[in-house]
Design a protein around this nucleic acid. Structure first.
Lengths: 260, 260
DNA sequence: CGATCTGTTGACTGTTATCAACTCCGGTGG
DNA sequence: CCACCGGAGTTGATAACAGTCAACAGATCG
């Protein structure tokens, strides 16, 4: 939960998944990286590329999109502290396109660094594996989402998941988060048409669950949203220290949500 | 591609993913295991359990089902040679139910054996990691399926994937495979209603793509099915030696598909 | 030989996609 | 400063795909 240094979100993420010591985190401070900025909808990796470095997301959001079609299905979303293409360490061939959702800041880290971690810090190495498994669990959960829930519930579930993951790295503590997605991005994620995405968001607003103006989302009624989405954060695999029962059950102060 | 011994399907699967030597496979022959038989729709693992062993599937099919609801969404299917709950090595808590689809034979292998592999055979250990990543890739592909394809294409894609995976472990070389699923199982996998699953299968039959009588599926027109499903096996990560261009392009002998 | 599960069919309903038009907004250039 | 433009959001009408309900046929099994 320390702040300040460039990779603090990654440190938070790792700490939420496994046991990492201060010595382990010191190694991260030496991590060689190139910082890169991307603008909205800009591609970072393309289908067919071969990866030799990993994309650690520092700010913003990234998405994996299906290769085929013009406005391809979004299969997963990364938040700060995530390593979007960790699997390229073992399967370097890229399937689909890695695209920025809104402006994003990324640290590119050579594969070599992560390979050396297995001797320098087995704990981090093992926690990175847990990160991969976490990605898998999210993917499985999204299968359930697309398969068995309607549009309203899908959108609600996505918002719940993103909020929880942001809180896990110390963002959005007050249920107010930066969401630079277009409604079409949301539609591509939830597998609905852009028109229906719009109507769905309106319904969430009508139920006084969320406010979404411009690029800022405010969750007015977290317990209500969780109930609607039947959201259970267990699958994320986070330890319950900071994002668990305490803050999860707390409703944001009603005074803070005066209508615009 | 050797035959006969109990774990030959696992050996085939591993060999299709990474480099394993004869010495590595010898270690598998010493693998401690308990053989267990399950009948159709019987649960092998239940939501909330803690796993201390892995389920290596020897014969039949297994499925992971969503916990909630009566006839829960199926999120993944295992074929012989798969280790259905490999992730419990690192995340022992079970999410969802592991259920047999049709009669199944399973070898239960203690976690300890796999942990010791990291010293006894780094090659197998590494290949097991590739197996996990393969599961992840399949899950992502299924997200695309549910998200962007209609019922007919979904079913076709599922049949293509299962066929390819079976062929990868030396089963179904003649595009004839044992499919002890009920139509409701298929529906739960493809996220459609049982009634619609029935109509979809009928359409596949009407197009002369498949025959499915009793518990045997015969693919009459593999190229046609692949085209309809827009199926590209690249995501499975199998090497192209045996199941690649050669047999994949081959159409089964037309003489073998006389109508019943 | 009845009980039950699976497969099949028809009629009706409902969620969501598609099409089209329009508004609103930020940026750009005259 | 204003006109223009393109992208994003919004709305209504219509159509398509799939869900639900209900009934029945066929298989399987005790």
């Amino acid at each position: 939960m320390q702040t300040g240094f460039t990779f603090s979100k990654l440190a938070d993420h790792l700490a939420s998944l496994g046991d990492v010591t201060v010595d382990d985190l010191d190694i991260l401070a030496e991590m060689p990286s190139t910082i890169a900025h991307f603008s909205s909808h800009q591609a970072i990796l393309r289908h067919g590329d071969e990866g030799h470095q990993c994309c650690l997301l520092l700010q913003g959001y990234l998405s994996w999109q299906d290769a085929e079609g013009t406005d391809g299905q979004i299969t997963s979303i990364s938040v700060p502290g995530d390593i979007a293409d960790l699997q390229t360490l073992y399967r370097p061939r890229i399937h689909g396109n890695l695209v920025a959702l809104g402006p994003a800041v990324v640290a590119l880290v050579p594969h070599r660094f992560f390979r050396e971690l297995s001797v320098r810090s087995p704990a981090i190495s093992r926690t990175l594996l847990l990160m991969l498994l976490g990605d898998h669990a999210m993917q499985r959960n999204w299968t359930i989402n697309l398969g068995s829930r309607d549009a309203l519930t899908r959108v609600a579930h996505l918002l719940c998941e993103i909020t929880t993951r942001l809180q896990n790295v110390g963002l959005s503590k007050d249920f107010r988060l930066s969401l630079p997605f277009t409604q079409s991005d949301l539609a591509a994620t939830c597998s609905i048409s852009p028109v229906h995405a719009n109507r769905t968001i309106q319904e969430l607003r009508r139920c006084n669950l969320v406010q979404w103006h411009g690029k800022t989302l405010t969750i007015s009624d977290w317990p209500g949203l969780v109930r609607l989405a039947r959201f259970d954060p267990a699958y994320l695999g986070f330890r319950s220290r900071d994002q668990g029962a305490r803050s999860m059950q707390l409703q944001p102060a009603k005074g803070a949500v005066a209508p615009a």
